[in-house]
Amino acid sequence: MPKIEVCLTPALLDLYAIENSIVVVIDILRATSSITYGIDNGAEAIIPVMNVEDCLNYADKGYLLAAERNGEVVAGYDFGNSPFSYTAEKVAGKTVVLTTTNGTKAMHLAQERAHKVIVGSFLNLAAVCSYLQKENKDVMLLCAGWKDNFNLEDTLFAGAVVAQLQQSFTLGDDASVAALDMYQLAKNDLRGYLKKSSHSHRLVKLNIEDDVQFCLKLDICNTIPVLEGEKLIALPQ
């Protein structure tokens, strides 16, 4: 039986052997939610880059440039990582170059060693779980966290995945057990539970509650973004 593990922050990823694992990168508020929504809405690709400066390498080449730091759009860029920037009207048929505080860094760290890297969010929870069940390989749920610290929202999503897969996978670490327990505690009112979270407080100060509510919607997307080379594209179904 394959195992499922949860890495609570990218700072711990070196402790795990992920060479044979499908890594699901999780940055619920808001990078992986926006990426999922954008690919589902017909974006040709999303290129995650580590630094704001890296975005500039793609300037004037027909790409949309998106940069977020500390929850805010970086001045001079087309948009940040709000899901409402990734509607079909804005991104269909286009390639977006994106850098965020936490999520894009986690993707690059995972890609260095993982068998495969995909993107997970509540928006595509069922699709991700179905795919992982079908592949029958070890799974690492990588929480992007906040600046290498643990956070509640990514861990909650990890717990939601564990809840759906626990009959078919061995729980490989205590973090997967803790994530599952936390999700069972919060699942009937995710937004209410996340009012305790530090990132939720940061986002409230930015007046983007609509983003938070949207990122907690369940299964409105069937697409799974997969990292192929430098680009996130739709996983062939």
Rank of each mutant, 00 (worst) to 15 (best):
E5W: 12
P225R: 04
Y183I: 11
I46M: 07
V204S: 15
R191W: 14
V162S: 00
V49Y: 06
A17W: 09
I46P: 06
T155N: 15
G192H: 13
F214S: 10
M50V: 13
L65Y: 11
G93K: 02
T36E: 12
H199W: 00
L180I: 05
P83T: 06
I18Q: 00
S200N: 15
F122D: 08
A126Y: 04
V204A: 15
G120L: 06
I39M: 10
I224T: 06
Q237K: 15
P10V: 10
F84I: 01
S33R: 02
E53D: 11
V119I: 15
C221Q: 10
D210R: 14
N57V: 12
V74R: 10
D27P: 01
T100D: 08
T155P: 06
K137E: 11
L64D: 03
I220F: 01
D154Q: 05
T100V: 03
P83M: 04
D78P: 02
H199M: 01
Y37L: 10
A175D: 13
A106N: 08
P83D: 06
G103K: 03
D210M: 12
Q213N: 15
L98P: 02
L156G: 01
L156C: 05
F150P: 02
T87K: 09
R113W: 08
N151L: 04
N102T: 00
T32V: 03
L152D: 12
Y193K: 13
S82K: 01
L13S: 05
A158M: 09
K187E: 13
S176L: 03
L227G: 04
M107A: 08
A144H: 04
I28G: 01
A45W: 12
Y16N: 08
